[in-house]
C-alpha cells in the first residue's frame, strides 16, 4: 500500500523533473520566458495517447511525442524568438489559449473536453514503470548537464546575460535561441508522453494555467539556471503538495487549497528570494 503510493509518486516526480529541467533550459539558461511550455507537454501527452489508443506501439509514440513537440517548438521559435522578452512571453502565453481551444474543439482527434481515456501502460508493473521513467529522467539530466557545461551552454547563458555582446562576439544568437527551444520542447513532449502513460488519460486540463503555475513554481523555487535547483524544486513542492492531502480534511477542497498554496509560495519567493534555493540568476 505505502510502497504503491511511493512508486506512483516517484513516477510523477520523474516526468515533473524532465518538464522543469526543460523549462529551465529555456527560461533559466537562455532567458527565453516561454509561458507556453505546457503546450509542448500537452502535445507530447496527446500524441502518445492518440497513437497508442490506435494500436501504434508505445516506443514509436514515445519518440514521436518528443519529436512532434520539438518540431512545432522549433517552428514557433523560428518565428518568435526575435521578439523582446515581454512580447515573447505574450506570444507563448497566447499559444496556451490556442492549444486549449484546439484540444476542446477538434473532437474527432482529441474527443474534446471528454479527454482520451484508456491510454495503455508502457510497462504494466508500476515499479518497473517508475524505474523506466527515472531512466529517461536520468538521461535527460545527463544530457542537460553536458549541454549546459559545454561551449553551447556557455553561449546560451551569454545570450541571456547580454545578447548584443554575444552577437558582437560572432555568435549566431538566433540559431542558439531556436536550438534551446527545440531541445526544451523535445523534453517537454517526452515528459508529456510519460505523463499520459502514467495516468492513462489526457484531457484539455493539461493546458490549464494552474498546472503551469505549479510547474513554474517548482522552477523558480529551485532557482533559475541550476539543474540541481530544479530537481530540488520538484521534490520540495511535490512534498508540500502531497502533505496537503493529509492536512486538508475535505477531499473536494484539496485541489483548490493546493493551487492557493503554490501561488503563495511562488509569490513569496518572487518577492523575498528571487534567486530561489540554488539559482544563479535573478528571475
Amino acid at each position: 500500500m505505502i510502497l504503491d503510493y511511493f512508486v506512483i509518486l516517484m513516477t510523477s516526480l520523474a516526468f515533473y523533473t524532465i518538464l522543469v529541467l526543460a523549462l529551465n533550459l529555456a527560461v533559466g539558461f537562455t532567458g527565453l520566458i516561454n509561458l507556453g511550455h505546457m503546450v509542448f507537454f500537452g502535445i507530447g501527452a496527446y500524441t502518445s495517447a492518440i497513437l497508442t489508443t490506435h494500436g501504434i506501439p508505445w516506443y514509436f509514440a514515445f519518440i514521436l511525442a518528443g519529436l512532434l513537440a520539438s518540431v512545432l517548438g522549433t517552428l514557433i521559435a523560428a518565428i518568435t524568438v526575435r521578439l523582446k522578452g515581454e512580447y515573447f512571453a505574450m506570444v507563448t502565453l497566447g499559444l496556451v489559449f490556442i492549444a486549449t481551444a484546439i484540444s476542446r474543439n477538434w473532437i474527432s482527434l482529441t474527443r474534446g473536453a471528454l479527454g482520451i481515456p484508456g491510454v495503455p501502460d508502457i510497462i504494466r508493473d508500476n515499479f518497473y514503470y517508475m524505474i523506466f521513467s527515472w531512466a529517461v529522467a536520468g538521461l535527460c539530466i545527463l544530457f542537460l548537464y553536458k549541454l549546459t557545461n559545454s561551449e553551447t551552454g556557455k553561449v546560451l547563458q551569454a545570450i541571456r546575460d547580454d545578447e548584443t555582446a554575444a552577437a558582437i562576439l560572432g555568435k549566431n544568437t538566433y540559431f542558439y535561441k531556436v536550438l534551446s527551444i527545440a531541445i526544451s520542447t523535445f523534453f517537454a513532449g517526452i515528459a508529456g508522453s510519460l505523463f499520459a502513460h502514467h495516468i492513462n488519460f489526457v484531457d484539455p486540463s493539461v493546458f490549464d494555467l494552474e498546472f503551469f503555475i505549479f510547474v513554474i513554481s517548482m522552477l523558480i523555487a529551485g532557482g533559475l539556471a541550476s539543474l540541481k535547483g530544479s530537481i530540488v524544486g520538484v521534490f520540495g513542492l511535490s512534498i508540500v503538495s502531497e502533505a496537503m492531502r493529509y492536512i486538508v480534511v475535505s477531499p473536494s477542497l484539496i485541489g483548490a487549497v493546493r493551487d492557493i498554496v503554490y501561488v503563495v509560495i511562488l509569490i513569496i519567493i518572487l518577492i523575498y528570494k528571487p534567486k530561489g534555493i540554488f539559482g544563479k540568476v535573478d528571475v
Binding site: 494552474e210 503555475i213 485541489g255 487549497v257 501561488v263 503563495v264 509569490i267 518572487l270
Partner: peptide
C-alpha cells in the same frame, strides 16, 4: 507571472 498567479489563486 505574479499576476497570472493571482489569477489562478482567485479562481481556486
Amino acid at each position: 507571472i505574479s499576476s497570472l498567479a493571482i489569477l489562478t489563486f482567485t479562481a481556486s
